[in-house]
Design a protein around this nucleic acid. Structure first.
Lengths: 211, 211
DNA sequence: GTCTATAGTAAGATAGAC
DNA sequence: GTCTATCTTACTATAGAC
């Protein structure tokens, strides 16, 4: 390659510093509230460098979403049991709002900002969030579907879909609670949420489980 | 009074037109995304009139939140059964994102924008949203608490609190789903959500209900 | 109370030296 | 690749005629 090694490393580390900076600001301020000047100063680089590494603000957020989603996938590839998934998602919600200890979780808090950012349908960052949201939903649905091998296919399919919808609503809802600063014990409610969903499973699978 | 009747009526109707305008814009664009020029043009009045009726953008949103909360209270004063509450809240979520058919519900969609608008702690509109959120939570908790007169006070208290937290997470979560444009049947999931919460009640009250 | 014109400012983005 | 200076636009808010 024509690029020298040291240069490329410097470039990559700057890029990462900028992504970390925009993550830390975006969690606090959302999309509109995060300014490029903020990002630059938080990253320690001048604003010119930000625009050298990223085309514009929109693309910067697109790459941030991709970056966070990669981190999430690596940490959550096999989701495990539904209870584990809820446990992780809901307690991470609380963490994400407070600090950057859980960067993967922070992604979802930023993402929700985009859910409400309906102004311009052609905002690429919003479109990317919605795409990842869909992909994640499919992923979770498939995993859940495989958890009920002993029931008829159509029943398992519908059950997995319902659980995925309910689980997503619950995790999103607790992320809202975290953002609003509600004074609740997220760990405890993660368990209660799992209890509630499991009882839905039990009710619906009566007659199939041991058939 | 020194104000002539016709003048006051005109003033009130203009004020209301502006509130309707900001509501319609805010549901689509959030706080930062709604500009005073947008509001003015949607209301049919020039921007100068908007500033004549409202001190500034922040106060405009404060009054919008108050206005919507009043509408909500009038429509929901006795919440009825938990199932009814969820039914209303969750199916209204879908409506709120699509149109202004349900202005009271729209309030909550705007509100969620403020939950994530953490940038300035001294944003009065955000503070008002959080205050109303708390008030609503207390209100719902009290109503739920009264639904279980046959169980020990501390058990009923904790149950009501847990149900209120879970119910709020579910309704917020479905509002997110509506904002994200998820293709789901909100009416159906309102029932499922109620089923799930009712099973929590059943489990916990075993031994008390008919004691 | 309504409306126009405009002041003031903040933010996204670029040019060009180094 | 880094950094500064600056252009441009868009938005909040006000002044002042009517």
């Amino acid at each position: 390659m024509t690029t020298r090694r040291k240069t490329r490393q410097a470039s990559e580390s700057s890029k990462r510093a900028i992504l970390e900076a925009v993550l830390s600001r975006a969690v606090e301020a959302g999309y509109e509230g995060t300014t490029m000047a903020d990002v630059a100063s938080a990253s320690g680089l001048p604003i010119g460098s930000v625009y050298w590494h990223f085309q514009n603000k929109e693309q910067l957020f697109v790459e941030l979403l991709d970056y966070c989603f990669e981190v999430w996938k690596q940490a959550n590839a096999p989701i495990g049991s539904m209870r584990d998934l809820l446990r992780r998602s809901i307690s991470e919600s609380a963490a994400a709002s407070a600090s950057l200890a859980a960067p993967a979780a922070a992604f979802w808090s930023i993402g929700l900002v985009f859910a409400f950012e309906r102004r311009l349908e052609d905002n690429l960052a919003r479109q990317r969030y919605l795409a990842i949201r869909k992909e994640m939903f499919q992923f979770v649905t498939c995993q859940l579907r495989a958890s009920y091998p002993e029931v008829p296919e159509d029943v398992a399919e519908e059950l997995a879909h319902d659980l995925a919808v309910m689980g997503r609503a619950l995790t999103d809802g607790f992320r809202v609670a975290a953002a609003a600063g509600d004074d609740i014990d997220f760990t405890r409610y993660a368990e209660l949420a799992a209890d509630a969903l499991e009882s839905l499973v039990t009710t619906r699978l009566k007659g199939y489980e041991h058939a």
